[in-house]
Design a protein around this nucleic acid. Structure first.
Lengths: 362, 362
DNA sequence: CAATTATACAAAAACGTTTCAATAAAACAA
DNA sequence: TTGTTTTATTGAAACGTTTTTGTATAATTG
């Protein structure tokens, strides 16, 4: 009645094993294994034999037991992906990039989310290592707890790459965006549009990207002679939830407005902050971009949807994900050949995306 | 020099096994296993013995090899999570819910993203089954290719739940939101605010949530006597990318405006569509909510951030994720005890969230 | 005191692969 | 012819667990 050849030993829900294939094809389990895996020895096996074995395997619907396979080969084609907060829209495009490249390399990701809690991060790290993932990709978005996280990540003997942040010790690979260049480009854009009174909502001090973006701003200021007015600079507080960046951005912008120090453009730490700023401006009756331009950073998905759509500095997030996979996959195969690979550090260029929220001063 | 007791057999990077623990503690491997797993027999093992074994294990830094463990127990505490598009903001909160509940149950998720491609979905399904994931959670966001997907999902003999859609055949568990109730609540809200000329941008016809939300609208219309003007109803085209819903929403709204048929409120299929509508209104110079109210559906993260923030019908996404995990975890343990579980279908209530984009007619 | 019954542990048999070493036949070389 | 290499296949030994069964002792019973 069933189309296929068999149902398996009646009641017992036992899977078909390599020995079943051996029996059905009339060869030994060894030969079957050799043929089905195209092992080196397969060179000596004549075509007809191969054919019979493959046919038998297909007929029986044979799928090698992956546990047994892993036990022997000590590999499982799985990598651990650790994010600090999935709900951060910054994550998703990177996840997409990771997934896509992993798929092409026939790896599967185990996803963990630390909720920005150190203990949870450690527990997950433990779990992933116990499962013998072949590599670790850490998505360090909005990450404060770095001090000894570093040591945690250097312990395990598997390829590791961290996205979005470079560890002080260079021994762990990293993929970052050129924050400084991005910061530079952002002010440069405002400046080119004629803005001179520019307000800044900087990121939390402990975030390295904060520092780097600001460094870019300073460099541009020196290069161009732009004056950075301390009265127009505020800092986001340290804060564990990226989505709350909006509230902080809103609050800081209101404070800025409150200072009665006029400005015609505002550069926000990131897009979330910029959203908050837009809201603050709206509530203060300041039209964007007519009375004030606003620029963000990251180019998260909502930025294009907002009204007005947000001018921002795009991080090539999918590419960053792809790059990270690239690094660990290389390292994995190097490890398989007993070659040693040095850590690699890639810094990707950011790109200015001009939309509606910035406008030339008339 | 090293704090811990040992480095392992010098050069050979071989892990510490249960036999090492046995040797170090002076007991047999069986005993060690029994103690470390708290197997039933552990009842007969005196405390001192347990102590010595645990100490030895800790000293050696013993971690059971999970491959071997899985091979014996045929379990791996892993579930497959299949989404159709991670970049859909609707996914993230659900993912968070899934992750959180899985964590509590000590399961780890393998995440796959079908990119809305049938072939990719099938390949991933294959991969997950080969890995013997213990359950499957399918996140059917923005899903068109359901016709034989259904049969695919009923084949594998593992607990499966589908979020966001109910399959015609009831044999696969599902977690859905009360779309009809949500649709009802949405119009009811507009109606309560005095709106009578209401425009609708309905979802793609092939989406079951489209139909159900509309059914809710119709039911309210009957209940209240509200007249649904066909001239004020447009449909989103079938379309594979949820993020493009914004463009479509924009286009459809412009068309609606073009019809010169006045309306004071617009109900969009979902938040993405509503964002498009907001943009269309802005470009047509229609102020929201003063001249026209707009309501969405879903309550994706950006909805709260928009200016004006979006009134919408919230799907309890985290709860949906949690509920799905709940269902499969129950089914897994039922399966372990050889009990049979029937498919369960949960329909969660939606919740109206009133924000700035709707306003009472004055 | 003999006969049970608990208690405390261990040997060995799986689980399903892959791979090494062995064997045997065939092909080739001298 | 004999000896060597190539071709074709296999048995058995891992991989590191868990679990079943077995065997001692020690404690308990009648």
């Amino acid at each position: 009645m069933t189309g296929g050849i068999l149902r398996r030993r009646e009641n017992k829900r036992t899977a078909v094993t390599i020995r079943d294939v051996a029996r059905a094809s009339g060869f030994s389990a060894s030969t079957v294994s050799i043929v089905l895996n195209n092992a080196p020895l397969a060179r000596y096996i004549p075509l007809p034999t191969k054919g019979r074995i493959q046919k038998a395997a297909k007929n029986l619907g044979y799928h090698p037991n992956i546990f047994a396979k892993s036990l022997r080969s000590r590999r499982n084609h799985t990598v651990g992906v650790m994010v600090f907060d999935v709900t951060d829209p910054y994550c998703t495009p990177i996840l997409r990039g990771l997934e896509n490249s992993l798929y092409q390399a026939s790896y599967l990701p185990i996803l963990t989310d630390a909720h920005n809690e150190r203990s949870r991060f450690e527990r997950y790290l433990e779990m992933l290592l116990e499962r013998r993932v072949e590599a670790l990709i850490v998505l360090a978005n909005w990450l404060y707890l770095d001090i000894n996280l570093l040591s945690d990540l250097e312990r395990p003997g598997i390829p590791t790459v961290i996205i979005g942040r470079e560890l002080e010790s260079n021994s762990t690979s990293s993929v970052t965006v050129d924050d400084e260049g991005g910061g530079y480009a952002a002010v440069a854009h405002l400046y080119a549009f004629g803005h001179r009174k520019i307000a800044f909502v900087r990121g939390p001090k402990t975030l390295s990207s904060s520092k780097n973006r600001w460094r870019g701003v300073q460099r541009f200021a020196r290069d161009s002679g732009l004056e950075l007015d301390p009265k127009l600079i505020v800092d986001l507080p340290d804060q564990l939830n990226p989505n709350l960046g909006v509230d902080d951005g809103n609050r800081m912008t209101l404070e800025l407005i409150d200072r009665k120090r006029p400005f015609t453009a505002l550069m926000a730490f990131d897009d979330m902050t910029a959203f908050g700023a837009l809201r603050a401006m709206a509530s203060a009756g300041i039209k964007v971009p007519n009375r004030c331009s606003v620029i963000g950073f990251d180019d998260v998905t909502p930025s294009a949807l907002f009204v007005p759509s947000l001018t921002t500095v795009r991080q090539p997030m999918e590419a960053m994900g792809a790059s990270a996979v690239n690094i660990v996959v290389d390292a994995i195969s190097a490890g398989a050949d007993n070659r040693r690979t040095p850590a690699v550090h890639r810094k990707l260029a950011s790109e200015l995306v001009i939309r509606e929220s910035t406008k030339a001063l008339s």
